[in-house]
Amino acid sequence: MKNMAMHMLDIAENAVRAGATHIRIRLESSQKHQTYVMLIQDDGAGMDKETLEKATDPYFSSRKTRKIGLGLPLLKQNVTLTGGEFRLESEPGKGTKVEAVFRQDHLDCLPEGDIADAFVFLLSSHPERQWTLAYQKDGGCYEVSSQEIKEVLGGTPLHISEVRKFLTEMINENIKTLT
């Protein structure tokens, strides 16, 4: 994966496949601590202990079409490369929580990419789910949810290109104002 936004997209798609109705994404970019935290929490099927242990093994996948699953292993690798931390918590029937703490001061830390763009893509691809994005910086936090967005848009579908562009710009503007 080339950047954080791609990892976010990938892990969030896992949540969708696990049948989650509400997917919460939290990003914390701290200049002070030189960390970048990505937290993705869902209320999907979850994993039992045995599956959880194997989840970061690339030669394991819960899918039946093939035997390799690289989403979580790749994220873990990219986090570990920066000397950061990776945590995975899950409970059957309750959901899964993926937490990745990147060290921003490490040379191998990935660029951020377009977070707003990836979030809007998720939202418009899966409009039937509930999505929340919280973006935290040292000076403040910006939060946006699919519910708020739907209220503003009325019945306008999210997959229309102008709508996606408008939302991406709006979220990006809000993230930019954070310090």
Partner: peptide, 23 residues
């Protein structure tokens, strides 16, 4: 196809392009 392999190779751009251009 939007699994890890697809996303890593740019499936998001392909999908956005298809949605916009077909319209």
């Amino acid at each position: 196809a939007m699994a890890t392999c697809g996303i890593a190779s740019g499936a998001k751009q392909t999908m956005e392009f298809l949605i916009d251009e077909l319209e």
